[in-house]
Design a binder for these strands. Structure first.
Lengths: 238, 238
DNA sequence: CGAAACTTTGAGAGGGTTCAAGATGAGTGG
DNA sequence: CCACTCATCTTGAACCCTCTCAAAGTTTCG
């Protein structure tokens, strides 16, 4: 029995929950084993930093579980969140250069980490992996550009409404019922929401309170939102 | 003579000025011929639209010469420029999906256009091309994220200063002399600068006039800027 | 139960927008 | 070459949204 087991060596990819969604999804069994050989899993506590802004990029990673933020700071310490990484998302900057933003866990998180040099070499030898990474990067670029319109041209109300709708869609699977009455967890503090939207914490708070008093949303707890009138909310978002 | 000529068929890549910088740069002679077969050159007048926002992505392109803008609009018609494409940059959205932004020539421009389906197939068969495209997309994503910090967290003065420094660096080769006295052409109208920075035309105008009166810059003509005190300008940028 | 962190609420100030008018410059045809 | 026109840019004044500063309220967690 033991002999049989060792003939098929254990591999943490086997139990990976994002195995079919992350960039590894097109790899063969052998390729997966090779990749497994250069990576390691790592657990992060909420608030723990994985990559520092401006560091030479020494590692890249796949998100397995949890939420992480990519962020950058002005010289006077104000922060802008550049993106939120969800399970199956790819983190870091392969192929040279430094990472121009920091990566920090927002919740407890599980990531699959690679030394960048190892990953770079592996990627160059496996075009299917590079292709997956390319598709992912193109989508991320689209999403980021869409966010620029929000940052550059929307007022506070539009920003909050867009944000709530986006989080609702992304966390969508959770609650349901009628189409326009969804409850979901924000996962972010008011300060973090402000840092995503380029606002202050007070403005975020006021806008959300206002939307609640207008019956667009409900706020059952600090980090929970119920959308009561999705249609009206979409109206405010544009 | 004619026989010899036809043995080495002419190929517009041969005379391409961005041949060694664009994503085609790693291709062999044969590959280049194949790519040449599916592409065509196209000339655009200033203001001409190459891709419309929200269109299903039917074509992609390399910029050979000129400047183009990627931009998106709010429902009430206000515009946000998401990026400027320079010669050797790649345009469009390969591998499915629609292009969530419009592409329009800012100056007279020359592009090398491909049907997206043709390009997709070619790319998948040529990993070196995909690799180039991946590196380029990763760089573009970095640049775009850097811009988010500007849009979300900087005031008008910081935005203008950052913008002028960035244009100066990108157009850098032109004039010179001392290190901190560069003259360059903006290529953009005040309105377009406003659309890049998420400001109004009036704010852009006021800030630039103010910087001129403070001796940071000079404005020899409407679209020309001279940086008189680069150090001070860098100070304003942060 | 008490302290610390986070959120809400209020009042006031300021930066950027809006609306409006005037100035400048480029292109056109007489 | 000069007037004329149109688009672009500058300047001014008033307003408003968001920020700032401050304090009170709420939740969380030891």
């Amino acid at each position: 029995m033991d002999v049989l087991k060792s003939a098929a060596p254990s591999n943490f990819c086997d139990t990976c929950t994002v195995r079919n969604r992350a960039i590894c999804s097109d790899l063969t069994r052998d390729e997966l084993n090779a990749l497994n050989g250069i990576g390691r899993q790592r657990k992060l506590r909420a608030g723990e930093q994985l990559i520092w802004e401006g560091d030479e990029a020494v590692l890249v990673a796949n998100v397995i579980d949890g939420l992480l933020k990519l962020s950058s700071q002005t010289s006077d310490g104000r922060e802008q969140i550049l993106g939120i990484a969800y399970p199956s998302d790819f983190l870091g900057r392969p192929f040279g250069g430094s990472t121009p933003y920091g990566v920090e866990a927002l919740t407890e998180a599980q990531v699959c980490v690679f030394e960048r040099r190892d990953f770079d070499r592996f990627a160059r030898e496996h075009p299917r992996l590079e292709h997956k990474l390319l598709e992912r990067t193109l989508s991320e670029l689209d999403r980021t550009r869409k966010w620029m319109l929000l940052l550059g041209r929307m007022n506070a109300e539009q920003k909050i409404a867009s944000f709530l709708l986006q989080v609702a869609d992304r966390a969508g699977d959770s609650d349901t019922g009628e189409e326009d009455r969804v409850t979901f967890d924000l996962q972010l503090s008011r300060q973090q929401i402000a840092d995503v939207l380029g606002l202050t914490i007070e403005t975020v708070s006021r806008q959300m309170t206002r939307m609640k008093s207008q019956g667009l949303i409900d706020l059952p707890s600090r980090r929970t939102v119920t959308i009561l009138d999705r249609y009206a909310l979409e109206d405010r978002a544009e």
